[in-house]
């Protein structure tokens, strides 16, 4: 297992999305998140994007007000993970259109679904944006007629 967890955190340190690929009890998660977020948020722009914490390597990247934190095993390639984070952001961007924190908050399940398509059991399985978005777009079309799509993807808009 390479990726152990993915966290999206805003500048105030509130978790916006959390995905763990190994089972941790709620207390462990809270403690871990608290420590990591405090550590990463305190870092300046000039410091590098890698932090070692316990037995994890945390790779983080900041986009506007959102921090993307990925916890990986010791021997994972840091730069590759940075590229992966960028790929996640691009995918979210493509779906929501200029994604922001609110998009992720109000469409958590979508964001989560995308992440699930990209990473499975800690392995990165898909980085082709179209492949990632196909299932979710299918779902939008078919399953839930009440669902209000983000305005930007007007093609699927119901109202």
């Amino acid at each position: 297992m390479t990726i152990r967890f993915i966290l999206l955190v805003n500048r105030q340190g509130q978790t916006r999305l959390a995905q763990y690929y190994e089972y941790l009890s709620i207390e462990e998660r809270r403690a871990l998140e608290g420590e990591i977020v405090r550590k990463c948020l305190a870092r300046t722009e000039q410091q590098c994007s890698f932090v070692e914490h316990r037995n994890y390597k945390i790779i983080y990247r900041r986009y506007a007000s959102l921090f993307f934190l990925v916890g990986v095993d010791g021997d994972e390639n840091e730069l590759a993970i940075l590229e992966f984070i960028h790929c996640v952001v691009e995918t979210l961007d493509r779906y929501f259109g200029n994604v922001c924190e609110l998009d992720i908050m109000f469409h958590l399940e979508k964001a989560h679904f995308m992440l699930e398509e990209m990473v499975m059991n800690g392995c990165i399985v898909e980085i082709n944006k179209q492949n990632i978005l196909t299932p979710i777009q299918l779902m939008d079309k078919t399953s839930n007629p009440q669902f209000k799509l983000p305005l930007s993807s007007s093609a699927f808009s119901v109202f």
Partner: peptide, 14 residues
């Protein structure tokens, strides 16, 4: 259940 899942994920609800 969906709400519960996200309460669990983000707020640490059991």
């Amino acid at each position: 259940l969906q709400k519960l899942t996200y309460l669990h994920m983000l707020q640490g609800a059991d």
